[in-house]
C-alpha cells in the first residue's frame, strides 16, 4: 500500500496520483498498476447536450427554405417566370449562411463563421447585378467595397484573436479601420462617378477617428495614464 507523502492518506491501488492533491505515487515496492480493480470502471457515460445543434440547424433551414420556395412558386405561377422572387430567395440564403454555420460546427471559430458570410454577400450582390439590365456596378463598385470592408474586419479579427492588439489598442484599431473604410468608400464612389481619385467629405470622418484613435493609443502605451484613469474613475 502507498501513502500520499503530501496528505498522509493511504491510496487505493487504482490511484496513480493522490486524488486530493495530485502528487504522483512513487513507490518502488509497489508501482502503479493499471490493471488494479477500480472503484469505477473506465467506461464513460456519454453526456448529451440539451440543445441538439444539428436539429436547431435543420429547423432554421426549413424555416428559411419554406418562404423562399413559396415565393419562387408564386412568382412562377403568376408571372410565368422567375423575376422578383430571386431577391427574396437570395436574401434568405444570405440570412441562412449568416446563422446556420454557427450550429453546424462543433467548435465554431470567428473565421469559420465569417468567411462564408463574405462569400454569401458577394454572391447575393452578383445575383442582383445579373438581374438588373445594367450590372456593371458589381465589378467597379460593389466588389471593391465588399473586399475593403471584409478585409478590414478580417484584419481586426485576426490581430485581436492572436493577441497582437489588446486593451485600449482595440478601440484604436477599430477607429483607424473605420476611417480608412470611409476614405476607401469615397475613393471607390468617385472613381465610378467622376472617373478620378478625389478626396472630400471622407476627410471629415477620417480626422476625428484618427484623433480619438491617437488618444486610445497613447493610453494603451502609457501605464501612468491608465493608472490615473483607474484611480479617478474607480467604482
Amino acid at each position: 500500500m502507498s501513502y500520499c507523502v503530501n496528505c498522509g492518506v493511504e491510496l487505493d491501488r487504482s490511484e496513480k496520483a493522490c486524488p486530493l492533491c495530485g502528487v504522483e505515487v512513487l513507490n518502488p515496492r509497489q508501482p502503479y498498476d493499471d490493471q488494479a480493480p477500480r472503484p469505477y470502471p473506465k467506461r464513460l457515460d456519454p453526456i448529451y447536450a440539451r440543445i441538439n445543434r444539428r436539429f436547431t440547424a435543420a429547423i432554421l433551414s426549413i424555416a428559411a427554405a419554406f418562404p423562399a420556395v413559396l415565393c419562387l412558386a408564386i412568382n412562377f405561377i403568376l408571372d410565368g417566370g422567375l423575376t422578383w422572387s430571386f431577391y427574396v430567395a437570395g436574401a434568405l440564403a444570405v440570412v441562412w449562411v449568416f446563422v446556420v454555420p454557427y450550429f453546424l460546427y462543433a467548435k465554431p471559430t470567428i473565421l469559420k463563421i465569417f468567411l462564408p458570410d463574405v462569400l454569401a454577400v458577394s454572391l447575393y450582390l452578383l445575383l442582383i447585378s445579373k438581374l438588373q439590365a445594367d450590372g456593371s456596378w458589381f465589378l467597379t463598385l460593389a466588389m471593391p467595397m465588399v473586399i475593403l470592408t471584409c478585409g478590414l474586419i478580417l484584419l481586426n479579427i485576426v490581430l485581436i484573436d492572436a493577441g497582437t492588439i489588446y486593451g485600449f489598442a482595440i478601440p484604436a484599431s477599430i477607429l483607424i479601420s473605420a476611417g480608412i473604410l470611409t476614405v476607401g468608400v469615397e475613393l471607390i464612389i468617385n472613381l465610378e462617378l467622376i472617373g478620378r481619385l478625389q478626396l472630400g467629405w471622407s476627410l471629415y470622418v477620417l480626422i476625428p477617428t484618427l484623433a480619438v484613435a491617437a488618444f486610445f493609443l497613447t493610453v494603451a502605451r502609457r501605464q501612468s495614464i491608465r493608472e490615473e484613469i483607474r484611480k479617478r474613475l474607480h467604482l
Binding site: C7, V9, E10, L11, P19, L20
Partner: peptide
C-alpha cells in the same frame, strides 16, 4: 476534501482514499 481527510489523519484516524479520477 483534502482538508477534511487531512484533519482526520491528524486525529489518528487512518484514511484510505479512492476516486474516479481519469488518468
Amino acid at each position: 476534501q483534502r482538508a477534511f481527510f487531512k484533519e482526520l489523519v491528524r486525529m489518528g484516524i487512518p484514511v484510505r482514499v479512492e476516486s474516479n479520477t481519469l488518468y
